[in-house]
Nucleic acid binder design. Structure first.
Lengths: 181, 181
DNA sequence: ATATTTATTGAACGATGTTCAAGTTCTCTG
DNA sequence: CAGAGAACTTGAACATCGTTCAATAAATAT
């Protein structure tokens, strides 16, 4: 239902009707909608992880081109799974409720795809520093994808967005290498 | 109310009580909450615009350092106006309702801060191309700020985030210059 | 066959955005 | 300044949510 109607289109009553049970029975499967959304998010993250893994496996290019491929794969996955991908970031827990550990774990896993080629590029850097850089790289690509796929503003055609992302990722890495030298 | 309790904490009843009128009277000022949020967003964007303008005015550094200052100013503004800034991006209209022109206009204005120094750096590029690059730069910095200020994951201390942003912006620009050469 | 545990139901509760008929206040005119 | 007409205000009522829970049904154990 999230995939079809978006996160805001997920209603427990519709869901109950769809799976053929009473309204209240939904809460036998899940504590509340927050958990439901997080569990869907978990599946989405797993599929995203597979997509990124496939992008890394394909061919055996340089670490920098691997990073470019990861970024493009991220972009493609977001475009092809727009609503599910958006749900990952649109969803907010109530202020007092904590995100469960298994969900945090899911999110952290993704950084390793970026971490590995980055470590190859910057063997002098420590794990801590590499983690921060991996995070920054991910964040900036995420930002480009998020705002690029937002039809709210000017709609950027997907091929143009992919090209733009590839260009900026290469620029970032080239720049980082130049800084390190 | 958005500034204090966040976008989700804005309730029309509370608002009516706060401004001292009946529930329904809110709708004399505003068609619906969507418009209310967009009008608050408009003010936030204006203040953000001022903050970026101030960052550009301060000193008279190179175009690349100007871009770094803009990025840092964006980060600082987001940190100091966290809830209001978040509301700009968290808010979603219902699928069938369009964002009004005046709100779109507000958003577009911001890119000019990036556009100007970028045009100085890449005088050979056309307006179209510069616009796309400006957008990409903004998007990637936005992504870093958005995920960096999310306490959901590991909380990055603000000074570290600023440093990280400055580093990556310099890397991106250096990389873009190298590509153009 | 009966008792006990487990699962399911759907009505009801509380919150929330929004509407609107009725009441109130303001304003302009004779 | 009186009073009619316009404009505004009110708060109860509606629809839509997520969520709860006593009552009921089903499954399982004795």
């Amino acid at each position: 239902m999230i995939a079809v109607r978006g996160l805001a289109g997920l209603k427990t009553r519709d869901l109950a009707r769809e799976i053929g049970c009473a309204n209240g029975a939904v809460y036998n499967l899940v504590a509340d909608v927050d958990e439901l959304v997080l569990r869907v998010g978990s599946r989405t993250l797993r599929r995203l992880d597979e997509a990124l893994s496939a992008a890394v496996r394909a061919g055996n290019p340089s670490p920098q081109e691997t990073l470019v491929r990861i970024a493009i794969a991220y972009c493609d996955f977001a475009a092809e799974n727009l609503q599910l991908w958006r749900a990952l970031f649109e969803h907010r827990m109530e202020a007092d409720k904590a995100v469960p550990d298994w969900s945090i774990e899911d999110q952290m896993q993704l950084f390793r795809h970026i971490y590995v080629p980055l470590a190859a590029l910057f063997p002098k850097r420590g794990a801590e520093e590499l983690g921060v850089t991996a995070r920054s790289l991910f964040s900036s690509v995420h930002g480009m994808v998020a705002l690029g796929l937002e039809q709210k503003l000017v709609a950027v055609p997907l091929p143009a967005l992919r090209k733009e992302i590839a260009g900026l990722v290469r620029a970032m890495i080239d720049g980082l290498i130049a800084q390190a030298a």
